[in-house]
Amino acid sequence: MHPYKQFSALLKKEILLELRQKHALYGMMLYIASTIFVLYLTLGDAEAETWNALFWITQLFICINAVAKSFLQEAKGRMLYHFSITTPSAFILSKIVYNVLLMGIMNVINLILYTAFLGDPTTSFFAFVGISLLGSIGLSLVFTMLAAIASKAMQQASLMAILGFPIIIPQLMLLVRLSKTAFSEIFRDGAPLQVIFLLLALDLSVILLAVILYPFLWKD
C-alpha cells in the first residue's frame, strides 16, 4: 500500500479505537477536572505568574498521561501485525498526528476549566490560546517519541517522566516566557516571533528524529 494511504488508515484506526473505548477519553477529562479542582481548593486566588506556571505544569502532566497510553495499549501481537503490514515511518507519523490532535483537545478542555476555576489573568486571551496550542504540539511530539522508547522497558509510566523532563525543560522555559506576552509584559520588537520560530524549529527536528530513529525501536 502507498505510505500515505497506510498513514491515513492508521490514523483512522487510532481515532476509531479512541471513540470505541470512550472510558480512556473520559478518564483523561476527569483527570484534568480533578487536578484543576485540587488546585482551585489549595490555591485560592492565583497571581498571573503562578497561574502561568501551574498551567504549564498541568499541561505537562496531562500530556504524559494522554500520550503514554498510545504505546501502552498496543499489545505485542498487534505490534507484530503492524510490523508486517506497515512501514515504521507511517506508523510513528500516525501516532504523532493522533497525539497532537488528542493533546489539542485536552488543551482546550484544560484552558476552559482553568479559566472557570482559577480566573483569567491574561490580557489577551486569544494570544494565550494560540500559545498553549503551540505548546501542546511540542509537548505531544516529544512525549510520543519518549513513549515509544519507554514502551520497550519496565515501569513505563514513571520512566517516561524521568526520560522526558530533562529534555522538555528548554521548551517549557520558552513557552512560559512566550506566554508572558499574553500577560501584557512588554517584549523587544520581534522577540516573541523569534521564540515562536525556535519552537517550530524544535518541533520539526523532533519529527525528523522520530522518523529517523523509530525504525530501530520497531524491530524486536
Partner: peptide, 16 residues
C-alpha cells in the same frame, strides 16, 4: 538498541 535511540534523541535535543 533502545538506549542507543535515547542517547541519540536526547543528545540532539540537548544541544539546541
Amino acid at each position: 538498541r533502545v538506549s542507543a535511540v535515547y542517547n541519540v534523541f536526547a543528545y540532539t535535543m540537548l544541544f539546541p
